[in-house]
C-alpha cells in the first residue's frame, strides 16, 4: 500500500475525470465563466454534480444560501463515504493527514479505496488522489479553452466513462457475494423509482436509496465472519 501503488490505481479514475471535467469546462464557459474561474472551481471542489449545480447558481445570480444548500444536498454523500472509509484506515492517519486527505474523497476515489483488500495508508491515499486531481484540473482547462474542437459525438460518448467504471467496480464483488448483489439491485430499483417520480432532489435521492439498501441488507444478510475483510 505505497504511493506508487496508489498512483497506479488512480489511472483509470484520472482518465474518466479527464473526460468528465472536459465536459464541465465546456459547460462552465458556456455558462459565461472565464476559463480561469472554471479551473479554480475544479481545483477547489473536485466534485462533478456539485460543480455543475454551483455554476448554475453563479450563472443565475443565486444567493449564497442557495449555493450552500445546493452543495450540502448534492455532496452530503461524501460524509457517508468518509465515515465508511474511516473503518479502513491504518493507524497512520494523524489529524493533519485527515484534514488534507479528506479533500480527495470523491465517488470514484472512495470506490477504489474501499475495494482494496487491506487497510489503506496515508501515502496510498495520497497516491490514489494525485492523478485524478491532475486529470480533473487539466480536463477542465482543456474543455474551457478548447471545448469546441472535439467532435460532438466523442464528447457525448465520454459521458459514459465514469458510469462504466462504477459498473466495473460493483459487478465482480456482486458475482461472489449475494448480499452485495442484492444491495446493488435494491439501490438501483429505488433510484429508478425516485428518478421517474422525483419527490426529492437527485443528490438526496442517491443517499436515501443507498442508505435503505445497505440497511436492509445489513439486517437481512449480515456479513459472515471472515467474509469481506473490512467488516470483521
Amino acid at each position: 500500500m505505497n504511493y506508487s501503488y496508489g498512483l497506479k490505481r488512480g489511472i483509470p479514475i484520472a482518465l474518466g475525470y479527464l473526460s468528465v471535467s472536459f465536459g464541465f469546462g465546456i459547460f462552465a464557459s458556456g455558462s459565461g465563466l472565464m476559463p480561469l474561474e472554471a479551473i479554480l472551481i475544479s481545483m477547489t471542489n473536485l466534485t462533478s454534480a456539485g460543480q455543475k449545480a454551483g455554476v448554475d447558481v453563479i450563472a443565475t445570480g443565486g444567493t449564497l444560501i442557495e449555493m450552500i444548500v445546493t452543495q450540502l444536498v448534492i455532496n452530503l454523500r461524501y460524509s457517508l463515504m468518509g465515515i465508511s472509509l474511516t473503518q479502513k484506515l491504518n493507524g497512520k492517519f494523524t489529524l493533519w493527514k485527515r484534514l488534507l486527505l479528506s479533500m480527495g474523497i470523491t465517488d470514484e476515489i472512495f470506490a477504489v479505496a474501499s475495494s482494496e483488500k487491506e487497510n489503506i495508508s496515508p501515502v496510498y491515499m495520497l497516491g490514489l488522489m494525485t492523478l485524478p486531481y491532475v486529470g480533473w484540473t487539466m480536463g477542465t482547462a482543456l474543455g474551457a479553452f478548447a471545448g469546441n474542437v472535439l467532435p460532438a459525438a466523442l464528447t457525448e460518448a465520454l459521458g459514459l466513462a465514469l458510469y462504466s467504471m462504477f459498473i466495473a467496480i460493483i459487478v465482480p464483488p456482486a458475482k461472489k457475494d449475494k448480499g452485495i448483489l442484492l444491495a446493488c439491485v435494491i439501490a438501483a430499483v429505488l433510484s429508478c423509482i425516485l428518478f421517474y417520480i422525483p419527490i426529492i432532489s437527485q443528490g438526496f435521492a442517491i443517499i436515501l436509496c443507498a442508505v435503505i439498501a445497505a440497511a436492509l441488507m445489513a439486517i437481512l444478510h449480515p456479513v459472515k465472519h471472515g467474509e469481506g475483510g473490512d467488516a470483521t
Binding site: S84, I167, I170, C192, I206, A231
Partner: peptide, 26 residues
C-alpha cells in the same frame, strides 16, 4: 449492524448513482 451497513454502503451508493443515470449519460 453498522459494520455490515458500512460494508454494503459503497456498492449501494455506486449502484444508485449509476442507475438510471447511465441511460441518460448521452
Amino acid at each position: 449492524f453498522l459494520q455490515d451497513f458500512l460494508y454494503y454502503i459503497p456498492y449501494a451508493v455506486l449502484s444508485a448513482m449509476t442507475f438510471p443515470a447511465i441511460f441518460y449519460a448521452t
